[in-house]
């Protein structure tokens, strides 16, 4: 039996863990929405500020899950957690900024260029959590629960013990983020099926 044991959704103005609001955007704050969420986590990880929004989104989603359930992800061995992420925009949000750096600002920025691949977020999650397991980033025309269901199952069948998955819709201010953890043989959680993937991850079905 496989189940979704925790999920975090982030919209343009709220952050939810397992459907419950854990943070709301403070419009008065001088900080960006993602910086507010980072500060809410009260963790020390200065690298966060160097990440692009796509990586920050995956980082925040996974950290909120970890904060709600301490030990949930760290109970696995190094090779056992697979990363399965997707979106529709690839790294377009940063691609646009990198293009501006050489078209309008005089010089191509190396620190932007290294984020112009969508799978960089997998690297950031791997570094943060010491995940040496399987990686997959796919670009889909729209949110597709079957992709997560099918490839998630495949990752278990091929040896992974847990799958950290996510939909990271980030483009020019749009924030449609969900990160969810799929585990097997756990008493709690929602059964890993299409309906629940939609519930936990669909951008149209945010809590």
């Amino acid at each position: 039996m496989r189940s979704i044991t925790a999920y975090c959704q982030i919209s343009e103005d709220a952050c939810y863990v397992n459907g419950d609001v854990v943070a709301q955007k403070n419009e008065e704050s001088p900080d960006s929405w993602f910086k507010q969420l980072y500060k809410d986590l009260a963790i020390e990880y200065p690298k966060f500020y160097k990440m692009d929004m796509l990586s920050q989104a995956g980082f925040l989603g996974s950290e909120f899950i970890k904060q709600t359930y301490p030990g949930l992800i760290s109970s696995y061995a190094e090779d056992e957690v697979a990363l399965l992420f997707a979106n529709s925009e690839s790294s377009a949000d940063t691609d646009i900024r990198f293009k501006e750096s050489y078209q309008d600002k005089g010089s191509p920025s190396p620190s932007l260029f290294v984020y112009t691949l969508p799978n960089i977020v997998l690297g950031e999650l791997a570094i943060r959590n010491k995940f040496y397991g399987e990686n997959m980033f796919a670009v889909l025309p729209k949110f597709a629960p079957d992709f997560f269901l099918q490839y998630g199952q495949i990752m278990f069948e091929t040896g992974s013990k847990a799958v950290l998955a996510g939909w990271l819709g980030i483009l020019e201010g749009k924030v449609e983020v969900s990160v969810f953890l799929i585990e097997q043989n756990k008493p709690d959680g929602l059964q890993f099926n299409k309906q629940n993937v939609i519930k936990c991850a669909s951008p149209d079905d945010q809590a």
Partner: peptide, 12 residues
């Protein structure tokens, strides 16, 4: 990568 960004900064 910061080192490379410093090179950009020097010129800019």
């Amino acid at each position: 990568i910061d080192a490379l960004e410093l090179i950009v900064l020097m010129e800019k």
